[in-house]
Design a protein around this nucleic acid. Structure first.
Lengths: 138, 138
DNA sequence: ACCTATAGATTACACTTGTAATCTTAACTG
DNA sequence: CAGTTAAGATTACAAGTGTAATCTATAGGT
């Protein structure tokens, strides 16, 4: 499967949140507030506005890339993702970790730790993952 | 700073391994075996061959992007990274985690766990990170 | 002092990406 | 039924990318 670009990914995100969806549903979802600018800057959500032509182009590209499928409904299309979000994010994560950290996940986490980007919640989530892992692999 | 492409990143990798370095040093390093195809497939290292013109183009682009600097040495250049590897990989990791996992690192690790992509070493590395973190944050 | 190999600079070129505008056709509106 | 609207298809277009080839100037060999 060909690569999915960043903009395409955002469209896919909207679709994963709710599908099947018409192009207009997707455009609306993308332009909803709440696709947050929560980067800790405290700025008002000055959301990017997605132009409908842009979104439709991206949908077409996703269809060509077989990342999205559609079915005719009257004269409209209803789109659905053909990829599972989890599979996709895993693939991308592995690819990044392979390229940057020789496939090892710990150095990535270590980078976060070093920059103080881990909080108590992150740590307890990690601990719980680890104990699950240990439950299954002893 | 502008984005660094995948191919550019590979050149930077070679440079991070040893610098300052001439273009030829970098080309040689890129074409060395051992920049491994260790993806667990057991295939023979059928290394990508980097064409010298290609590498020089990429070096130029990196210089334009201020990711790499150089100084004249006689008539040659000696290149050096202007970015720290660690800072760069952290930025990229954070960006991916922001886009795919709402900034949370645990879901990424969870994906790996689910796919059986964690082994004992990974787990102990993570545990040790966690205990360090706890030592510093209690 | 000339010729050549070579380093770096410049140019090339197809493909992708972000971002739309225009075209075509069918459905709704009056 | 004719005109307008709107959905999807097609086209656009600049910037970035991967991958080089060609150009230019100079250092080194003979």
């Amino acid at each position: 499967m060909t690569e999915i670009s960043n903009a395409e990914f955002e469209v896919l995100e909207a679709l994963w949140q709710h599908y099947p969806a018409s192009a207009n549903d997707i455009i609306a979802k993308l332009n909803e507030s709440g696709n947050s600018n929560t980067h800790g800057t405290g700025e008002v959500n000055q959301e990017k506005q997605w132009h409908d032509k842009t979104v439709k182009t991206l949908l077409n590209r996703l269809v060509k890339k077989q990342a999205v499928g559609f079915e005719k409904q009257q004269r409209h299309y209803l789109y659905s993702p053909l990829l599972e979000r989890e599979a996709y994010t895993l693939k991308e994560s592995k690819s990044l970790i392979e390229r940057m950290f020789s496939g090892k996940i710990a150095p990535l986490v270590a980078g976060f730790a070093k920059q103080n980007d881990l909080n108590k919640d992150d740590i307890s989530a990690l601990k719980s993952l680890i104990s699950d892992w240990e439950k299954n692999n002893d």
